[in-house]
Each structure stands twice: as C-alpha cells, then as structure tokens.
C-alpha cells in the first residue's frame, strides 16, 4: 500500500518537475503537462490533425500485416530448425548471429526495395518480429522431454497426436512468450520505420509536428502512440495468460 503511494508520488513529482522546467524553458523545445492537455484534447477532437484516425488505421494495418508474416515465417522457420537436428545445428547459430546485428542496419535497404510506402514498414516490422518468434519456437522444441515423446509413441500415438498432445503443451509457455515479444517488436519496427521515413501513418504525423516545432502536438501524438503500444502488449499478455491456463 505504502509502495503504491510512493509510486504515485514519484510520478507526481516527475510531472511537477516537468511542469516547472517546461514553463521555464523555451516553448519550442519543451512543453509543460498543462500545455499538453489542450493539445491532446484538440488532437482527439480531430482539430489539429483530422487525418489521425486514417493514420492510426494505416499504422494498425501495417502492424497487423507485419505480425501475421512474422508469425507465419517464425513458426515455419522455427519448427523446421527445431525438428531437424542437423539443420538446427547448422542454421541455428547463424540465425542467432544475425540476431546480434542491430536490425536498423537493414532498414535503408528495405526503403530502397520497397519505397517509402507501407511495404517497407511492414517488411521492417516483420524483420523485427521474426527473430524472437523463431528463437522461441527453437527453444520450445528443445524443452520437450524426449521421454514423453517416446512414451506417446509406445502407446501408439501418431505424429499429429504427439505434436498436439505432447509437444505443443510442453512448449506452449515459451512459444506464447515469443509471440508476445514478437508483437511488441513488430509494433516498434513499424513505428521506427514510419519515423525514419514515410508518407503516411502515425509516425508521419509525429515527424510533421516535430518538423513544424508544434511541440505540444508532438507530445500529444506520442501519448496516443504509447496507448497503441501499451494496448497491444496488454492484449498480448491477456492471450498469454489464457494460454497458460490452458496448459495447466
């Protein structure tokens, strides 16, 4: 209880510092929270950026497309590497090494390939989401107790039954964790892509507000984007909890 109050107190103190500093600073560089609220109201009432719903919708569709591709490719790739021992041992470390490269190095190439439209954002979101999902599947497959598989085979279970009744339940926890991380990274990938160069979407609006030094609008747009980011993660965590209950 005390901890909760201290947490809120800390937040309030930070906001107060921001307010005081924001009032003292150059209004082009910093805005106090009290100035953000009207900007947020204007934004939500579609006064400052009437194209907000369309932009959000585009960004959401980009995220959706990127995530679907990442899940499909990640599951496919992960199971392929996980099921065949040799393939896994040869390509697994190579994949891990590629994962050590900061993904943003691929972004200029993606822009060159796919242009400034949605496709390059989808590709970048996909790239970010693909790795954690693949690696989670790989780790999950390794978690399956081979003894259980042997027992299931001994009781006459076929490959499909073994997969559904033995493998999937034992790896579900890791798998779902990977899917959650994958979604978070897809969201980040799309937003990063939009901010680094785009013609439409929420990132474009952020760049626009920043470019025109409409700092209050910029902060309001960032807050809206944060709702999107946090919302997607909350959704994923709800699904994660459901999956956990299902395994138990």
């Amino acid at each position: 209880m005390r901890v909760l109050w201290l947490r809120l107190g800390l937040l309030a103190a930070l906001l107060a510092v921001w307010e005081v500093a924001g009032r003292a600073a150059n209004p082009l560089l910093a805005v106090p929270p009290s100035a953000v609220l009207p900007a947020l109201r204007d934004l939500l009432l579609l006064r400052s950026y009437p194209e907000l719903p369309a932009s959000l919708w585009l960004t959401l569709r980009e995220i959706g497309a990127a995530y679907m591709l990442a899940v499909a490719a990640g599951l496919g790739c992960g199971f392929m590497l996980g099921m065949h021992r040799l393939v896994g041992r040869v390509w697994g470390p190579m994949l891990a090494a590629l994962y050590a490269v900061p993904a943003v190095v691929w972004y200029p190439s993606l822009m060159l390939f796919f242009g400034l439209e949605a496709a390059s954002k989808i590709a970048f979101g996909f790239l970010l989401g693909f790795f954690p999902i693949t690696l989670a599947v790989l780790a999950g497959v390794r978690q399956v107790n081979p003894q259980l598989v042997t027992v299931a085979h001994a009781y006459g279970a076929g490959a499909v039954t073994v997969f559904r009744r033995v493998m999937l339940p034992s790896m579900l926890f890791t798998l779902v964790g990977g899917l959650r991380t994958g979604l978070a990274l897809c969201v980040i990938g799309v937003i990063v892509g939009e901010i680094l160069g785009s013609k439409a979407g929420i990132g474009t609006l952020i760049n626009h507000a920043y470019g025109l030094l409409r700092t209050a609008d910029y902060v309001a747009l960032v807050l809206v984007t944060l709702v999107l980011v946090v919302g997607s993660d909350v959704l994923a965590s709800l699904l994660e909890r459901r999956a956990q209950r299902w395994t138990e």
């Binding site: 082009l28 560089l29 969201v187 980040i188 937003i191 990063v192 901010i195 952020i206 760049n207 920043y210 030094l213 700092t215 910029y218 960032v222 984007t225 944060l226 980011v229």
Partner: peptide, 11 residues
C-alpha cells in the same frame, strides 16, 4: 519504443 523521444532529443 525510445524512437518516440528521438525527435525531441534532436530538437
């Protein structure tokens, strides 16, 4: 995503 504060840092 830290990218959201990047414009402000550059500003």
């Amino acid at each position: 995503p830290k990218i959201l504060v990047l414009p402000w840092i550059v500003l």
